[in-house]
Design a protein around this nucleic acid. Structure first.
Length: 463
RNA sequence: GGCGGGUUGGCGGAUAGGUUACGCACCGGAUUGCAAAUCCGUGAAGACCGGUUCGAUUCCGGUACCCGCCUCCA
């Protein structure tokens, strides 16, 4: 069996990955808060961890990997949207409006995920479905002296967990020095964080021993990973921005609730995304969603390729130029593997992926296969990265019936060969090139292929 | 202020203590009516200063610059 090595954020080292149970490799990834469309940055972990999932399935068997990614559907931004709809005159209850909003958002998320070629996780639990286990875990933490109830809130006592801060490399005292923590009168320590908080009439709430309220953000991942994967599991993933405080708090909660277990053994964090060299933000006007790109005609497979061409632990810069290059490469490869049966994934690609998910290296290995003309190997190996999948190639064939134009160009050319007047041939050729069509003429004949930036609309004028 | 990460050829972007990354672009050649595509080939790098080493772009330390997190943003 091949050896997978992964960079573990917990130890800050690359380590050999040995699952607790090779018959059931377990991975938990923090999913989205379903209040709006996934932006481009949200798409990166979606694709990165999907690729890891595919690798694990390849190595351990498709039925021997359990992948859990949650939907956070308890959130103030969701409440705000629902409240806004209510204020706009919607007669339905807040509960119904909240449900509508989360259903709508989850539908969008799934559609975007499908477009990016990401497989559905084994389980996609929603926080609202696990309120009971969360309450149970909180009760256990209180009983163990790790949490305390005050004024309708329940807070986690960070001083009760000696390793608090180990994941992100900071101590409680360091953090307090930063002084950017919410100080509340009911907190014993400024770093203590909320496990449960009271809800107003307008806010969603559930009955609990501490009154009607709702869970804090972090507890859902601790409760759901425990329910679905057990107290100890193999991999926990998410964006680097979640390392602190979210993952730190998850560790504190889970390790105190289940002191004999080790919780997640490998922590993987993907770096952040930038757009044309700058942080994506609404104020800079460079904020966009996965759906925005898809609507602009950038195929999901191209987006996926761009994500994977940078190693997940490095900041990734989204640029239009990269999308253009990726499209060209994919068109070339797709033409090559069209109609070919996939062979077995090639060792060089597997080795690259096994080396801390070196997707950029794997893509380089795919280029080698392309150059060597190994279409069957290319198709199978690309499949490990979720590329060149049969179901994702529609973008490549759209409006591809260029046979009429090809025939016209061929006859013009044949005529020109005798008259030596090539001007009409060149005119048609440059019009085609301008529309993004690749023009190939040889002794064998004329071939027209859609190329990067192919625009069928421009061909209409030629008809 | 605290913590973490980064700095590779024109651009993007990997691996490896010593041998060509790779892609795009560029240049030369084959091919072509001219091109395109394809194939072959050339050139081009490792922020700066030290240290370890027979040898470092790769390990260690420092400097500079950049970025992220510390605010329920992946």
């Amino acid at each position: 069996m091949v050896t997978i090595r992964l960079h573990n954020s917990k130890t800050r080292k690359k380590e050999v990955f040995q699952p607790l149970d090779p018959a059931n490799v377990r991975m938990y990834v923090c999913g989205p808060t379903v209040y709006d469309r996934a932006h481009l940055g949200n798409g990166r972990p979606m694709v990165v961890f999907d690729t890891l999932y595919r690798l694990l399935r390849h190595v351990y068997g498709a039925d021997h990997v359990t992948y859990v990614r949650n939907f956070t559907d308890v959130d103030d931004k969701i409440n705000a949207t629902a409240a806004a709809r209510k204020a706009a005159g919607d007669p339905r209850s807040m509960e119904a409006l909240i449900h509508e909003r989360t259903e709508e958002t989850i539908g969008w998320y799934h559609a975007d995920m499908d477009a990016l070629g990401a497989l559905r996780p084994t389980h996609e639990p929603r926080a609202t479905e696990y309120i009971g286990p969360m309450v149970a875990m909180i009760e256990g933490l209180i009983a163990g002296g790790h949490a305390y109830a005050k004024e309708g809130h329940v807070l986690f006592r960070v001083r009760s967990y000696k390793d608090y801060g180990a994941l992100s490399g900071r101590s409680v005292d360091d953090m307090i020095a930063g002084a950017r923590v919410e100080v509340a009168p009911f907190k014993e320590d400024p770093m203590d964080f909320v496990l449960w908080k009271p809800s107003s009439e307008e806010e969603p709430g559930w009955a609990s021993p501490w009154g009607r309220g709702r869970p804090g953000w972090h507890i859902e991942c601790s409760a759901m990973s425990y329910e679905l994967l057990g107290a100890s599991f193999d991999i926990h993933g998410g964006g680097l921005d979640l390392q602190f405080p979210h993952h730190e708090n998850e560790i504190a909660q889970s390790c105190c609730a289940h002191p004999k277990a080790e919780f997640a053994r490998f922590w993987l964090h993907n770096e952040m995304l930038q757009v044309e060299g700058k942080k994506m933000s609404k104020s800079l006007g460079n904020f966009f969603t996965v759906r925005d790109l898809l609507d602009q005609g950038v195929p999901g497979e191209v987006i996926r390729f761009v994500y994977l061409s940078t190693h997940y632990r490095k900041p990734m810069d989204w640029t239009a130029e990269k999308a253009r290059e990726a499209e060209g490469t994919l068109r070339k490869w797709r033409a090559m593997v069209s109609g070919v049966d996939a062979g077995a994934p090639v060792a060089s690609v597997i080795e690259a992926l096994c080396d801390d998910l070196n997707t950029a290296g794997a893509i380089a290995a795919l280029h080698d296969l392309s150059r060597a003309g190994d279409a069957a190997g290319l198709k199978a190996s690309a499949g490990l990265l979720g590329l060149l999948d049969e179901g994702m190639g529609g973008w490549c064939d759209k409006g591809a019936d260029l046979s009429d134009l090809a025939a016209r160009l061929a006859s013009l050319r044949a005529e020109a060969m005798t008259t030596k007047n090539f001007a009409p041939v060149d005119a048609l050729k440059s019009a085609l090139t301008d529309a993004g069509v690749e023009v190939r003429m040889s002794k064998a004949g004329v071939e027209l292929l859609p190329g990067p930036g192919f625009d069928p609309a421009k061909l209409e004028a030629l008809k």
